[in-house]
Design a protein around this nucleic acid. Structure first.
Length: 347
DNA sequence: TACGCGTGGAG
DNA sequence: TCTCCAAGCGT
């Protein structure tokens, strides 16, 4: 006979196995009354959306060192925040991060609201992030449902309905299991379990505190859960980018519009990206094609970029973009696809 | 509901 | 090289 999953068993496991993370107040310190800074919890949760812990760590350190409070961040220049986010991906998060910081600074007195509805109303804060900040920062009664929780619940209940249709079902399971107290520790415990034990591939069921309650373990189906609806395969698009260097070393760059792909980020001027891109030099010059191509894969398409370079005289004015002084330009400020084009051009 | 939206690492 | 995927959100 299978046991019923007990939240206490998971909390006991978490007390001994919690990962040490830069943004986390561990279970022992939390028991001693230490409370996490809601700003840091929120910042980390935004960064962690669809992004690995390993990728987030260095960005988190840079942001918290440069902007220690939400009011500091609210006062930052847009271009500085976008540059600091460059390489982390999903740039709408950075734009909403700034919007949110400014709303908190101006409408909430620089203090994150300890209220689930108020959190949910903030830019870039959806159901998951509101629950995570509410539980972790304030121990509010909230259930986090992220990819980890979906996986754990689908296995615990041997739920074969494919995602995303299964989401409401799995959410119901997760809510039914959430304890009344220690909601912050519990939220982090389920996610740690999913990240370290109940992993997508080769789950370590032998170490799982909920093994005796797990329907998938009993049925031997854990490796095939959660079920997902098949994704479409990615088409390939072509494009041309133009790297113009002025004789004084300045680079010709353009700020991309706030909406859409790479919105708000710096980039090289170029053609549209499609099946047969048309030449679109941003300034009159003798353009030379760089050997090879820059390849990059986005969420929903592959891109192959032809890279053109030219040296232009001081007086010549660009039709598109603006020259950025050499001292003010760092390739690290570019989104990865644009940095790849830069790397290719520089050899 | 379905799609657009990045990137780097694992296998 | 290729597929999957990692603490989702906005539209």
């Amino acid at each position: 006979m299978r046991d019923v999953a007990d939240p206490s068993d998971l909390l006991d496991w978490y007390d001994h196995n919690a990962r040490a993370l830069p943004w986390r107040v561990g279970p022992r310190a939390r028991a001693d009354g230490v409370r996490p800074d809601p700003y840091r919890v929120w910042l980390s949760e935004i960064m962690l959306q669809q992004t690995t812990v390993a990728a987030v760590k260095s960005y988190y350190e840079v942001f918290t060192a440069r902007w220690p409070t939400v009011s500091d961040l609210a006062a930052a220049r847009d271009e500085d925040v976008m540059a600091a986010w460059a390489g982390l991906g999903y740039y709408a998060r950075a734009r909403n991060l700034l919007k949110c910081a400014r709303v908190v600074a101006e409408e909430h007195g620089g203090v994150f609201p300890a209220d689930l509805d108020a959190l949910r109303a903030l830019p870039g804060v959806g159901p998951y992030t509101a629950a995570a900040v509410g539980a972790i920062a304030f121990d509010l009664p909230a259930t986090v449902v992220d990819g980890n929780v979906e996986r754990v619940m689908s296995r615990l209940h041997d739920e074969h309905t494919p995602l995303p249709a299964a989401k409401p079902i799995l959410t119901g399971y997760a809510e039914a299991l959430t304890p009344d107290g220690r909601t912050g520790d519990y939220a982090q415990a389920v996610m740690d379990l999913g990240a370290t034990i109940c992993s997508p591939r080769n789950p370590a069921c032998g170490l799982c505190p909920w093994r005796r309650a797990c329907a998938a373990w009993e049925a031997g189906t854990q490796a095939e859960l959660p079920k997902k609806t098949p994704k479409k395969r990615k088409p390939t698009r072509l494009g041309i980018v133009y790297l113009a260097r002025r004789v004084d070393g300045a680079w010709l760059l353009e700020r991309r519009p706030d909406r859409g792909l790479l919105g708000g980020m710096l980039g090289w001027p170029g053609s549209e990206w499609g099946e047969a891109p048309q030449e679109a030099p941003p300034i009159r010059a003798e353009w030379k094609e760089v050997a090879g191509e820059a390849r990059h894969t986005f969420t929903h398409f592959h891109l192959r970029l032809k890279v053109m370079t030219a040296l232009v005289p001081m007086e010549r004015q660009p039709d598109v973009g603006d020259f950025v002084e050499q001292a003010e330009f760092s390739p690290a400020d570019l989104p990865t696809v644009m940095r790849k084009a830069f790397d290719l051009a520089r050899g």
